[in-house]
Simulated assay, not measured.
Amino acid sequence: MDKHICILEDDPGIREILEILLSEEGYHVEGYSTVHDFFSKKNSAPDLFILDVMLPDGNGMKVCNLLKSDPATKATPIMMMSAHADLPQMTSGCKAEEFVVKPFDIHVLLRKISRQINSGPGT
């Protein structure tokens, strides 16, 4: 499949489950727990970003807006996830292509990921 997904999620259980699940689906996955690590270690523009909203050192919606304002990543689809923010707050806070409320159904999440990856800039 050779599609690359970058996850910014501070909850280690959710991040690890996503990394394992998406790796088993054939995706190359990079996971980060902080905004600092995300920006300092992220290697290249992936096919999809999955960002949590509430992070220990920042806000995923601000990260989304930074990615959408960067010419290198502005066309890359972004999926926002949150257990705390409501959908209208998330949709007005950033220009992500997809929004997921935690807890999420794994099958629904995989369909949304597939849809975004297959409609992204590299396809």
Score class of each variant (00 low, 15 high):
2 D>N: 14
3 K>R: 15
3 K>A: 15
4 H>P: 00
4 H>F: 11
6 C>G: 06
7 I>P: 04
7 I>R: 01
8 L>Q: 08
8 L>C: 01
9 E>S: 09
9 E>I: 11
9 E>K: 04
10 D>A: 09
10 D>K: 12
11 D>I: 11
13 G>A: 11
14 I>H: 05
15 R>V: 01
15 R>N: 09
17 I>D: 12
18 L>M: 14
19 E>M: 13
20 I>V: 14
21 L>D: 01
22 L>Q: 12
22 L>F: 14
22 L>V: 10
23 S>F: 07
23 S>P: 01
23 S>I: 05
24 E>D: 15
24 E>I: 00
25 E>R: 15
26 G>D: 11
27 Y>E: 07
30 E>G: 05
32 Y>W: 00
32 Y>G: 03
34 T>G: 08
35 V>K: 06
35 V>I: 09
36 H>G: 14
36 H>K: 14
36 H>S: 14
37 D>L: 10
38 F>K: 01
40 S>M: 15
40 S>W: 05
41 K>T: 06
41 K>D: 03
42 K>R: 14
42 K>S: 12
43 N>T: 15
43 N>P: 08
43 N>S: 14
44 S>F: 07
47 D>Q: 08
47 D>M: 10
47 D>P: 03
48 L>M: 09
48 L>N: 01
53 V>C: 13
55 L>Y: 06
55 L>C: 11
55 L>R: 02
57 D>E: 05
58 G>S: 05
59 N>R: 08
60 G>V: 10
62 K>S: 11
62 K>R: 10
64 C>D: 01
65 N>W: 00
66 L>C: 00
66 L>N: 03
67 L>P: 05
67 L>D: 12
68 K>P: 03
69 S>N: 05
69 S>F: 01
70 D>W: 02
70 D>V: 00
70 D>T: 00
71 P>V: 06
72 A>I: 13
73 T>V: 05
73 T>Y: 03
74 K>G: 02
74 K>N: 10
75 A>Q: 12
76 T>F: 06
77 P>R: 00
77 P>H: 03
81 M>Y: 00
81 M>F: 04
84 H>P: 04
85 A>T: 11
86 D>K: 13
86 D>P: 01
86 D>E: 13
87 L>E: 13
88 P>E: 12
89 Q>Y: 06
90 M>K: 07
90 M>G: 03
91 T>F: 08
92 S>C: 03
93 G>D: 08
94 C>H: 04
96 A>F: 05
96 A>D: 06
97 E>V: 02
97 E>T: 01
97 E>A: 12
98 E>G: 02
101 V>S: 10
101 V>P: 00
101 V>L: 15
101 V>Y: 07
102 K>R: 15
103 P>R: 05
104 F>R: 00
104 F>E: 02
105 D>L: 06
106 I>H: 08
106 I>N: 06
108 V>K: 07
108 V>E: 14
108 V>F: 13
109 L>D: 09
110 L>T: 07
111 R>D: 15
113 I>F: 04
113 I>W: 04
113 I>V: 15
115 R>W: 09
116 Q>S: 15
116 Q>E: 15
117 I>N: 03
118 N>K: 12
118 N>S: 13
120 G>W: 02
121 P>K: 07
123 T>E: 11
123 T>S: 10
123 T>A: 12
123 T>H: 14
